[in-house]
């Protein structure tokens, strides 16, 4: 059981979360009885070697995929008890997702992409909040552009803005800075951290970059579908150190 060190209630919780792909010979246990809590108003980074189950964990937590067994709570709602309609509503109203690939709709311009979740929900755009978000991600002069007319970093910022604009309870971000140069990456990360600090946003982010992990309040380390370690108040150096350890452990075992 992973205990969290904060007083806030948990925004999302996984209990005995297991995800198995395939069956028989090709069976892959991507998540193996994972227990984890993500406190509200907290910025959590998830790290681990490739194939350790990071993306799978995010998908299951964000109600994009169904676990094989175990439970996922968003706030106090248990996801497996929901039907498709309620799942949809939960995704729509309470969850945001920033994808590893940018996943913008190519036919819509930047602004339309950003407000798409609100469009889908049939909600009005809170223009003040929209402006704040846009200013922070620095997209003010690119709103009318199609994704194909934006750089990779700009596209990623659009994706971030899209996740933020509907003020979800919790945002899951899968390597949001994976494709960016360090400066653009830093901008995004700073923005994410600010939205946690100042707006009380809850964010869970997968990353391979110790520098990015340093922006978080806490780092969880995943290995072979299990949480193998965690670290509070991370710095790039500490994280790097810890990762080296894993590497040697991995080599030994």
């Amino acid at each position: 059981m992973t205990t969290h060190t904060h007083d806030q209630p948990a925004a999302a919780t996984a209990v005995e979360l297991t995800k198995i792909y395939g069956s028989g010979d090709t069976e892959v246990v991507a998540l193996d009885h994972v227990d984890v809590e993500f406190a509200a108003g907290n910025f959590t980074a998830i790290m681990g070697p490739s194939g350790s189950g990071k993306s799978t964990l995010m998908h299951c937590m964000a109600a994009l995929d169904a676990p094989t067994s175990g439970k996922v709570y968003i706030g106090d709602i248990e996801l497996s008890s929901l039907n498709d309609k309620d799942l949809t509503r939960t995704r729509r109203d309470r969850l945001g997702f920033i994808f590893q690939a940018f996943n913008l709709v190519p036919t819509l311009n930047a602004k339309e992409n950003i407000t798409l979740p609100l469009d889908i929900a049939g909600k009005d755009v809170d223009s003040e909040w929209f402006d704040t978000v846009i200013r922070t991600v620095g997209l003010s002069d690119r709103l009318k552009h199609k994704p194909s007319e934006l750089s990779g970093g700009q596209q990623q910022r659009v994706a971030c803005a899209r996740a933020l604009v509907s003020k979800p309870d919790i945002i899951f971000a899968d390597e949001p800075t994976g494709n960016l140069d360090s400066r653009s990456g830093a901008e995004i990360l700073a923005f994410l951290r600010n939205s946690v600090r100042e707006l009380g946003q809850t964010i869970v982010m997968v990353t391979h970059d110790p520098g990015a992990a340093a922006y978080a309040d806490r780092v969880l380390f995943l290995g072979d579908g299990r949480i193998v370690d965690e670290m509070a108040e991370p710095t790039a150096e500490k994280v790097l150190e810890r990762m080296k350890n894993f590497d040697t452990i991995g080599q030994v075992s």
Binding site: N103, I120, R162
Partner: peptide, 16 residues
């Protein structure tokens, strides 16, 4: 379908 999936991930219902 990828676009549709994206819509779904962003909270669009099946009916939508």
């Amino acid at each position: 379908s990828q676009e549709m999936a994206l819509f779904r991930a962003l909270g669009a219902s099946r009916r939508q």
